[in-house]
Design a protein around this nucleic acid. Structure first.
Lengths: 250, 250
DNA sequence: ACTGGGCCTTGATCTAAGTCAATTTTTTTG
DNA sequence: CAAAAAAATTGACTTAGATCAAGGCCCAGT
């Protein structure tokens, strides 16, 4: 559905040329360790909109998002849904040590995963300290992000939620450097209004109204509904309810 | 404020007699490893209501909750507060690898921590694989719990939130075994209505009204405001909005 | 170039939970 | 044990966001 780089031919990609090698679970591994991983990995691409894992399913694999965007979500019996994580390239899918999936994982755009069978991967986690080290770091980062999101879900207004989401998407795409905070910035939202509403704990109508309210207030411009231009990033930041550089710590 | 076991005399407690030794970060350590930890630890008790760490502060120590209840929370400039974690005995405080605290930590009841200076502890994390292993496991569990909570904050009704909180408190105090799910169950809530409201993303008035609504509907009984008697745990569970055994996975 | 199906927007109305304001109950402490 | 402080309840009223219900836009495929 989107600029998903010229499709990787699965087995042919060497870890050396992997676009996420500096940030994924394997980031700290040395040559010899990489060799072990290299031998076990396999790529799989999921088309936009397709499920990757269902909550309750047995988890036969774990892996890293190489390209694309996936989402982690939870569904209640009556259909209420809450997204609990947005998985971008280098993010990890699956929880070692757990047999059954707790959440649904779904491809939002086309998604390519670098997969490992779960059991063997768990062995590697024990054998390769660097792997476990990075895994811990990533888990702690995600935990902080999840807690940040809890504040958003529990206490922020609809407008603050939208502003927060936009700033987060902008940052995650690395369009904003700390220094050029006041610059004009533009980026794509890879999410439908519905997906946004699931992330923010709102309805899609409210998302639509609030986005258009931000537009009316001249905080953003829209091109073709999915492309956002922020004229003054600092002003948008001020709408998030976060203090100052909110989240640019350490 | 509550039954906080006969105050531990700090330096005198040996890890052998530690009430949390089977579940804390050190749970997987062997004798020799424990010896290292033993030499570095020190206990500190914080009176109910007092701050343990402020967001933004430098983190000089990390540690485990030995007794009591602490809470992790976040505050917005205008005073809106969201609790993002409830720390019970064996839970870990602080984030190795981070210099500054991201969240406030506060003693809810009297709290005793088993503390380690952060820097030396980070060294141990590298030296003692068992420590890192347990740390990862705990981080992943907390991440799952945080995501579970995101569903509650984003999608549940006030009544569902209260019912969920009550079942969680009951479980955490181990009053409920999976088997005796239908039994009468009673427990204390160590939280004020205000603390509950901060956890649930509600106001204290709504918390009060919903608790009393559950009482009127004969789902719970109250003794002295803070002690809850659940006559039929399954019926309370049904009010949480979660499916079936909600969360008793794996 | 037309049409069907996702998306998205917009309006009217409803309602769960918030706000404001007492009052009562419980706990603390001098 | 009385008085003060803290916690909890209860009521009246307001409101942000949900719900219900049309329409409009856009591009994908014939």
């Amino acid at each position: 559905m989107n600029i998903t780089s010229p499709v990787l031919t699965p087995a042919s990609v060497s870890c050396n040329e992997c676009p996420i090698k500096h940030r994924a679970v394997c980031a700290y591994c040395e040559k010899s360790e990489m060799a072990k991983l290299e031998g076990m990995k396999s790529y799989k691409t999921y088309p936009a909109g397709s499920p990757i894992i269902f909550a309750g399913d047995q988890m036969k694999f774990v892996g890293s998002v190489v390209t694309g965007v996936a989402r982690l979500s939870q569904t209640m019996e009556d259909g209420r849904r809450q997204m609990v994580g947005l998985l971008l390239p280098s993010d990890f899918v699956g929880r070692p040590g757990r047999t059954y999936a707790t959440f649904d994982v779904e491809a939002t755009t086309d998604v390519t995963l670098c997969r490992f069978d779960r059991k063997p991967f768990e062995k590697l986690l024990i054998d390769i300290p660097h792997l476990r080290e990075r895994m811990l770091e990533m888990a702690l980062d995600e935990l902080d992000a999840a807690r940040e999101w809890m504040l958003l879900l529990g206490r922020k207004t609809a407008r603050e939620k939208i502003a927060s989401l936009l700033t987060i998407i902008a940052r995650r795409q690395n369009v904003v450097q700390t220094s050029e905070k006041y610059a004009v910035v533009h980026f794509d939202i890879n999410l439908t209004r519905e997906a946004m509403s699931e992330y923010l704990g709102l309805t899609l109508e409210t998302v639509s109204r609030q986005i258009n309210a931000l537009k009316k207030d001249n905080l953003i411009e829209l091109e073709k509904k999915r492309h956002v231009v922020v004229k003054d990033f600092a002003r948008l930041l001020a709408e998030t309810g976060d203090d100052e550089d909110g989240g640019f710590l350490d």
